[in-house]
Design a protein around this nucleic acid. Structure first.
Lengths: 352, 352
DNA sequence: ACCCCACATTGAATCGTCTAAATCCTCACC
DNA sequence: GGTGAGGATTTAGACGATTCAATGTGGGGT
């Protein structure tokens, strides 16, 4: 019993009070309470104090649903990513949330797990909630559902995907990223090279591959092998790694470019298990430059994307679109990636 | 111009239609539309059809805020975790979401990043949204805010934390987990052993340490070293690893138990860089058994927690609490952890 | 003593949906 | 042909917060 300690079942009997109870207890009208909440300066100090006391005493908490209904617009933004477990997206979310916070807005994080069905479900839910906008790394950026969403009034910003038109978007020049990686490996003297990623239908992947292939194939006597995976995770990278390690040395590639760091990490582990030295027997370049990459057993070369910045600008574009309303024009923001060379692809650094 | 393709600015002029427009177009009253939506069987087939056509034609989407306001209860559940980037929590979220889906409920994932301020902010937001309940891995399970939340009517279920009373909770017996790890290392002959985790104020960490210490110190001539970190991530594990690797061999521990797998992975990498063999020079046991653990360069021994199951049961308890309402009694569900022995702590498996 | 203005507060309508009670119809049955 | 039963549909009033027009109250100025 311990004093007035509140246990489980008091709810129902004592539901959260509404503005009305607050008003009654303070001896004012609901309008005044609302004013204290939204424009405190127009309320006489004494009254204001009384209302605030009442609010505290009753433990009043604003009802967002009611505000939203009345205001016609919500204060939450949906963020749909392909894989929350991927630090790249975690960083991205971080950036988006930081800016949202400044705008007194809440982010609702949704994980599509590279699955169009889950993605659709999340979009439906978000639309029903009339979120003020959606930031999404779509499975398929031509999905008619996205256009439909926009046409029904929910602003959508594509993240990590360049939009042709019809949307705002923030992205990174993936072809350039591929070229950077390609240049680097060619200049390091590699001629039998693997590209690993997937699904190839995803624009990011195909762009990285395109840039990479274009650069690599400009050199003479190059053999480019392509391996496709359906999900880009550590497990898949390891599997492909085992497969490649098992190839006879004369046909095995001497370098691999992987479309994200999770893949690269799995791949790296497979090399180590198979007894292949990195970078001597196999040079590796990943993509995203997640924190893990730097911290890997052999620090991983990687194409860095400004993940947090991406999230931040996406949210910025959305806020802009919401505020500008009628006269908004869609914008495409494109960032440049950087190649970070570490030990996994540069044997001159060995031991440094 | 491409046909009737919808570009940016049509919103405002053509806001999402409400039930009223649907009703008008179908030539019925709003009540009927609502009936079609909620109890279609009481509406005459012909009318129902007409309404459904109208819904489709107008692209009507229910307004969740209004439903919520009217119904007095929301269909979303808040899930506040310490670190979304940790696969353990991702799995946990997965389990929670799966069950939520079955109950036609939405999960709002919030990342507190082991920061009480962020945690508080998220709790405020969730309460304002009048979520139907909150699942939380709290920074401090005695936080009076949690009790306050409950007393104001928001059910709270503690996740991965045993509650004494006042809450439902799901947790794993962390002391047992510590004992399992301790036993294993003692039986493998280790006598100079490190425990690494933190902050020690977090109950999970202190429980794991307590169970571990109790078991380890029962053996003779044991030296237990404790290292505290403030966040349990890969980077911190690597840092501690470097520190320990630099110790002179005769005082350096021969085995380490780390309070989560991210720490352990970082630690493992540091060993590899320092040229120490795992498990010969250093045996390692982690905690959580995340996917990465199995896939690490040296597969990691780890204390497995049924992460997905935790999330699932937490959601189950919440649904139960919400439905039972008045006569609900809080329950504490406790799972048993398992020790998964892999190469990192068992040299007999080397090469297998 | 009167008027008007400034400031403080109130009242009422509104947002979109749901539901219980009320009304409307039609048809079967006597 | 009248009556009532039953199904189909409509009506009206919440839910909680916001906002703006309307009302109230002093006090200063003439």
């Amino acid at each position: 019993m311990a004093g007035t300690r509140i246990y489980g079942r008091d709810r129902g009997t004592m539901a959260t009070p509404s503005i009305k109870e607050v008003a009654h207890r303070a001896g004012v009208s609901v309008g005044t309470v609302s004013n204290v909440l939204n424009r405190p300066w127009i309320v006489a100090p004494a009254t204001r104090q009384r209302v605030q006391d009442s609010i505290r005493a009753l433990g009043f908490v604003r009802n967002e649903a009611a505000r939203h209904l009345r205001a016609g617009k919500s204060r939450t933004v949906g963020l749909v990513v392909l894989d929350v477990a991927n630090p790249f997206f975690t960083d991205l979310a971080e950036g988006a949330e930081a800016l949202a916070y400044e705008h007194d807005t809440v982010v609702m994080l949704c994980n599509s797990k590279t699955d169009p069905v889950r993605e659709g479900h999340h979009l439906d839910q978000l639309e029903q909630q009339r979120v003020m906008g959606i930031l999404i790394t779509p499975f398929d950026s031509n999905d008619p559902r996205l256009t439909a969403l926009v046409s029904r009034g929910t602003p959508v910003v594509l993240v990590d995907r360049a939009a042709d038109r019809g949307f705002c978007s923030v992205s990174v020049d993936d072809q350039l990223g591929g070229r950077l990686a390609g240049n680097h490996l060619i200049e390091s003297g590699h001629r039998r090279i693997a590209f690993i990623g997937g699904p190839f239908t995803m624009q990011q992947v195909s762009d990285r591959m395109a840039g990479f292939a274009a650069t690599v194939e400009r050199a003479d006597d190059v053999e480019l092998q392509r391996y496709e995976v359906d999900v880009m995770g550590v497990v898949e990278g390891r599997a492909i790694g085992e497969k490649i390690a098992a190839l006879p040395p004369r046909s095995r590639p001497t370098a691999a470019f992987l479309a994200n760091d999770l893949l690269a990490l799995g791949f790296l582990q497979a090399m180590s298990v198979a007894g292949l030295q990195v970078p001597r027997d196999m040079a590796i370049v990943g993509y995203d430059d997640i924190d893990f990459a730097r911290a890997a057993a052999v620090p991983l070369s990687s194409v860095r994307q400004p993940a947090e910045m991406l999230g931040r600008s996406a949210m910025e574009l959305l806020q802009e679109e919401v505020e500008a309303a009628e006269q908004h024009r869609h914008r495409q923001v494109i960032f440049q990636p950087d190649l970070i060379v570490r030990e996994s692809s540069d044997h001159t650094r060995r031991g440094k």
